[in-house]
């Protein structure tokens, strides 16, 4: 079970790549224009970044107990990340937190809101509704 320098190098590369993905996620959060695109930036480190960091950690730690727990964290992330992303983005789309002017195609074509419909949390920079 002695870690060779090669395994160590692989582990460190995985850790650094995962950290880099976390950095780009933060960058995307700041640079992207609306909730849906920011969501893309947010789910990326949750999947690939966490996976890479967990692989690196599992190689470095080598104790069976922690390895299994890291595997469990990775599986949890991969099961739960799409669910939370879907729920948040579905609400965002229905609440019109979407910059329609930046969109090429919108094939779902949600109807504009009726007058008097209860509207909750609208973004300050919400795009004007057509019509």
């Amino acid at each position: 079970m002695n870690a060779g320098p090669l395994a160590d190098a692989v582990a460190l590369t995985c850790l650094l790549l995962g950290s880099l993905l976390c950095l780009t996620a933060g960058l995307g959060l700041v640079r992207f224009p609306d909730v849906l695109t920011r969501m893309h930036a947010g789910t990326k480190p949750q999947v690939l970044g966490v996976l890479l960091v967990m692989i690196g950690g599992a190689i470095r730690l080598q104790g069976w107990s922690s390895t299994w727990m890291l595997l469990l964290v990775a599986v949890f992330q991969m099961l739960t990340a799409p669910i939370s992303a879907h729920m948040v983005s579905r609400v965002a789309y229905r609440r019109r937190h979407v910059r329609r002017d930046l969109m090429v195609v919108d094939e779902l074509g949600m109807a504009p809101p009726r007058a008097g419909e209860a509207r909750g949390d609208e973004p300050a920079d919400a795009a004007p509704e057509p019509g």
Partner: peptide, 17 residues
């Protein structure tokens, strides 16, 4: 996606299919 985040011109536009 990481490259699209970092590159200077950012993302062009998105779509819903």
């Amino acid at each position: 996606v990481a490259w699209q985040t970092v590159r200077p011109r950012g993302i062009a536009s998105s779509a819903i299919l």
